[in-house]
Write a protein that binds this DNA or RNA. Sequence first.
DNA 1: AGTGAAAGGTTAGACCA
DNA 2: TGGTCTAACCTTTCACT
Lengths: 149, 149
Amino acid sequence: MQLDETDRSILRILQSDARTPFSEIAREIEMSSATVHDRVGRLEDEGIIEGYHTSVDARAVGFGTSAVVGLRIEQGQEDDAVERLREIDGVQEIHLTTGEWDVVLRVYAEDTDHLRELMFDNIARIDGFSRSQTMVILGSELEDRSLPI
Amino acid sequence: MQLDETDRSILRILQSDARTPFSEIAREIEMSSATVHDRVGRLEDEGIIEGYHTSVDARAVGFGTSAVVGLRIEQGQEDDAVERLREIDGVQEIHLTTGEWDVVLRVYAEDTDHLRELMFDNIARIDGFSRSQTMVILGSELEDRSLPI
DNA sequence: AGTGAAAGGTTAGACCA
DNA sequence: TGGTCTAACCTTTCACT
């Protein structure tokens, strides 16, 4: 599906603030709010808008530790391994990649003890697992996530 | 600051749908919408709510390629390097890490050509850069980002 | 595909327990 | 803190273009 400049403007605004009222978007892009309403509905229906999320300070809710984890999985066992990984609380992203690792995860843990538990008791025990590398995040300089639409 | 169960419930609901009307949150947690309004305002003021974002299908807006990039930066040059990285369009996350890499990036590009350009013309030319590894994301099995509050 | 208008719902702010 | 009230504002639908 082809996006026009109006769709892109709406996406740009919603990306930076998902709670922007349609009436305000309408003002900014100089269209009626009924139009904005229709377009947003269409973008949702077509799956171009995947969802509206609130980013919460991980530390404030008890997740002070985060890591990027690279995993090697034996050939043919990737699908099963991904299923196991999905079930682990704290595993927030699972990416299948080329290069040194087959799977790259983003993991949130309460503290380093909890992270160790996740790694040794949950992740390292997965069938097909052969080796891993944990890169503890000391700080995030950018965690923007908005696309340059 | 200490979060009580009401705050956590509000965060849980907003995390899964940032556009949920306060009146509906109020119904779900059995409080008045004025209370929800006050609490959300406080959570925003205290920085516990960091923002409301819309996730947009990257492919639909022309970013079909994504990668995780590990970088080695010579000691003492990390801060300058991070500043340069920030300025690069397509670099969506910058994490300082322990382990094999000093910096881990999440990068979005239009296609593999664009990714190569980002890597060779932008990232590899940064002062202090010593080596990198690019893990192209073939698919994301989970890209949840919501915390188990 | 876009609009204006109107009904109904939501929010912000002042004030009370 | 939490609640009530209210005016201003926002969303949604629909007939019309």
